[in-house]
Design a protein around this nucleic acid. Sequence first.
RNA 1: GGAGAGGUGGCCGAGCGGCUGAAGGCGCACGCCUGGAAAGUGUGUAUGCGUUAAUAGCGUAUCGAGGGUUCGAAUCCCUCUCUCUCCGCCA
Length: 426
Amino acid sequence: MIDPKRLRTDIADITQALKKKRYDLDADAFTQLDAARKERQIKAESLQAERNQYSKTMGRLIAEAKSKGGDIAPLKAQGEALKNAFIEAEQSLHEVQQQIEELLHGIPNVPDGSVPEGVDEADNTEVRRWGDIPEFTFTPLDHVDLGAAIGGMDFDRAAKISGSRFVQMRGKLALLHRALGQFMLSTHTLEHGYEEVYVPFIVNRESLFGTGQLPKFEEDLFKLSDERQLFLIPTAEVPVTNIYRNEIIDQLPIKFASQTPCFRSEAGSYGRDTRGMIRQHQFDKVEMVQFVAAEDSWQALEELTGHAQKILEKLALPYRCVTLCGGDLGFSAAKTYDLEVWLPSQNTYREISSCSNFTDFQARRMKTRYRDSRTGQLEFVHTINGSGLAVGRTMVAVMENYQQADGSILVPEVLQPYMHGLRVID
RNA sequence: GGAGAGGUGGCCGAGCGGCUGAAGGCGCACGCCUGGAAAGUGUGUAUGCGUUAAUAGCGUAUCGAGGGUUCGAAUCCCUCUCUCUCCGCCA
């Protein structure tokens, strides 16, 4: 959520900045609503003050009236009149407050100045490339064909069990999948200073509101039919970030890493990536989440992106890093780097990690604060998160980049300890 | 699933219709004391919102959440939620 105070004082600047995100802020509507809010709030609060004042003297007045044998009905009637006047003012205040809130909840985070202009992913700007694109003396297969040849990657049976966009794996491929997750988690905890967390995979509306998936993006989520309004997590970002919802953190920074399954309805992407494991309703992901002081978040974003890159580098997978342009940037993010891994079968780079600085946007929604050591004031923390990495897509990348002419797959050296020393999958 | 008990400030814990943003204690901060420290002692110690030049005042809200009764609710009533105890069931 954007700071409403900032919206009052800098609305022109914010409106301009949000254009980059292709969001059209109705500044006049906000200004009018806020003026109405101010007027009504002053009125309601002064009526309430009057009423409080009156109620305080009531005990004495009633006692006096009674001792003189007087009638206390008029005293009560006056109190009642004050109450009714207040209730009316309060209702009218609530109306505007609700409208303002609705507007506020739908405004995306303001993109950072360094975010490039643009409408979609074609306008993302490349920051760096790493690794050499492998050259094959044969025509490389994609992971689906490789999986079929090896055996143990079964989309048909997954469809029978569940439907489209699911996979079932067995044997060495299931092991490879597990090894990848373990390798990532171990690297982040042992080398990058993250603490491992295990979290619920089912969350409530408040948590999804906190990180920004709700109220706008409900159709992307799997919702449980149960009356409690629970949802399957689309990313570990939701439960992990919400660990500190409604709390004051006393020690920053905090760095968490967590492996979870992620569930996405993929509504609106019907024709895209229908083949293979690239776009599934369920996939595993290792997520890194940092809570930092406001002044540290930009550095933390660079650091966290580096941690994700490190995984790709250890796996010797060629990748590039791009800065998302305004139009491609998510609702809650102020800036996002995507890491894209090389996929030989597609002869292109595909997203495998997304690392973002949310500044105080999520913290404001979650009411997650810390005490600034210099001013002693409570401030909203900044949150940063990123995939480190999407396990399913990493598996695709390993299979395709490490394939050999005979259809077997070499196991990257760093994974071998996690795979009982296995060097080749065939 | 059945029966019961409870959620009050950073923590513990009183309060059970007006004088309570909330006793008392612990913790914390600052001062005094001390050669220094401990002990002792004094003072202070929530947050949001509004107004404002102001982190000064003033107003308003908050005692798990939401609703209700009342002139007035932390205190009474209802719903929800979470925690604990006992029984049942169970990975």
